[in-house]
Amino acid sequence: MIVSAIAFYIFAAIAIAAGFMVIASRNPVHSVLFLILAFFNAAALFVLMGAEFIALILVIVYVGAVAVLFLFVVMMLDIDFTQLRQGFLQYLPVGALLGLILVLELGMVGASWVIAPDAIHAAASPAPAFIDQVTNTRALGRILYTQYVYLFQAAGLILLVAMIGAIVLTLRHRPDIKRQVIAHQVGRRRDDGVEYKDVKPGQGL
C-alpha cells in the first residue's frame, strides 16, 4: 500500500511538471517531448488504478501516433514563432479570463468537499459485485457504446472537423509543383499519348 502511494505521488508530480513544461518551453520540439512524458506518467497512473486497457490505449494512440505526429509536424513546418508571439498581448485578457474561470471551478470542487462531505463517500462507494466478473475492456465498451454512444459519435465528428481544418490550413498550392489530376488521367485518350510518324525507308526520326 505504501509502495503504491509513493508511486502515485511520483507519477503525479512528474505528470504535473511535464504538463507545465509543455506550455513553458520556448522550443516547440521540447514541448512535444514533455507532452509524451506526461502521457507516459498518466498511463502509469491508470495502471495503478487498475485500468490497464486505458493505459495501453493512451500509450499506443497518444504517444505512438498523436504525439509523434505533432513532433513531425512541428519539425517540418516552417513556422515564424517571432510573428506568432507578436499577438500574445492581444489575447492575454481572454486567456486570463479563461484561467480565472478554471480556478473558480476548481475552487468550487474543493469547496464541495467541505460543504457536502457525504459526496466523497458516495463517489468512493464500492462497485457492485458483478463488476468483478466483467473484464476491463468489456466494461468500458458497454458504457461507451450504450450510455455515451451519442457523445462518442459527437467526439468523432469533432475530430473529423479538426482534421479537415488542419488539412485546409496547411495545404499550400505552389505553381512550380506538378500535381496529379485524376480527372485528366481518366479522360486521357489514345490520341493524346500516341503519335504516328510516317518514316520513309532509309530515314530516321
Results as ranks from 00 to 15, higher is better:
12 A>F: 10
33 L>D: 06
15 A>M: 12
29 V>N: 13
20 F>S: 13
24 A>N: 11
7 A>E: 10
23 I>Y: 14
28 P>S: 02
34 F>L: 02
28 P>M: 01
12 A>M: 12
19 G>E: 12
29 V>Q: 12
31 S>N: 12
11 F>I: 00
28 P>A: 01
27 N>R: 13
19 G>H: 05
23 I>L: 13
16 I>M: 13
30 H>M: 12
25 S>E: 15
8 F>M: 02
20 F>H: 10
23 I>R: 14
9 Y>G: 00
6 I>Y: 09
17 A>P: 01
15 A>Y: 00
30 H>I: 12
14 I>H: 01
27 N>D: 15
24 A>V: 06
27 N>H: 10
8 F>K: 03
18 A>Q: 03
10 I>Y: 03
23 I>K: 11
22 V>S: 07
16 I>N: 08
28 P>R: 02
23 I>A: 14
24 A>T: 11
32 V>H: 05
17 A>W: 06
33 L>W: 08
34 F>P: 02
9 Y>E: 11
27 N>Q: 12
14 I>C: 05
29 V>G: 09
9 Y>L: 13
31 S>A: 15
31 S>I: 06
10 I>W: 00
13 A>I: 04
26 R>K: 15
8 F>D: 02
23 I>V: 14
26 R>M: 10
11 F>E: 09
25 S>A: 15
27 N>A: 13
34 F>A: 06
26 R>H: 14
18 A>T: 11
11 F>R: 01
22 V>Y: 06
25 S>T: 13
12 A>W: 08
32 V>G: 08
29 V>E: 13
10 I>T: 08
17 A>G: 11
8 F>L: 07
35 L>G: 09
28 P>N: 03
21 M>Q: 10
21 M>K: 11
9 Y>F: 12
20 F>G: 13
14 I>G: 00
7 A>L: 03
14 I>Y: 00
20 F>P: 00
31 S>L: 03
19 G>N: 15
34 F>E: 08
21 M>F: 14
35 L>E: 06
6 I>R: 12
13 A>C: 03
14 I>N: 03
33 L>V: 15
28 P>G: 02
16 I>H: 06
25 S>Y: 07
18 A>S: 15
16 I>E: 09
18 A>M: 12
23 I>W: 14
11 F>S: 09
18 A>W: 01
33 L>P: 05
26 R>P: 05
18 A>F: 01
9 Y>R: 08
19 G>W: 02
31 S>Q: 11
17 A>Q: 05
23 I>F: 15
29 V>C: 06
20 F>D: 06
10 I>G: 03
16 I>K: 07
17 A>H: 06
13 A>V: 03
30 H>N: 12
23 I>M: 13
16 I>P: 08
26 R>L: 12
34 F>T: 02
34 F>G: 01
34 F>C: 05
32 V>E: 04
20 F>Y: 14
11 F>C: 06
26 R>S: 15
7 A>P: 01
29 V>K: 14
22 V>M: 13
7 A>W: 02
9 Y>W: 07
17 A>Y: 07
6 I>H: 12
34 F>I: 01
10 I>H: 03
31 S>V: 08
27 N>C: 08
19 G>V: 05
29 V>S: 10
30 H>F: 11
26 R>D: 15
22 V>H: 03
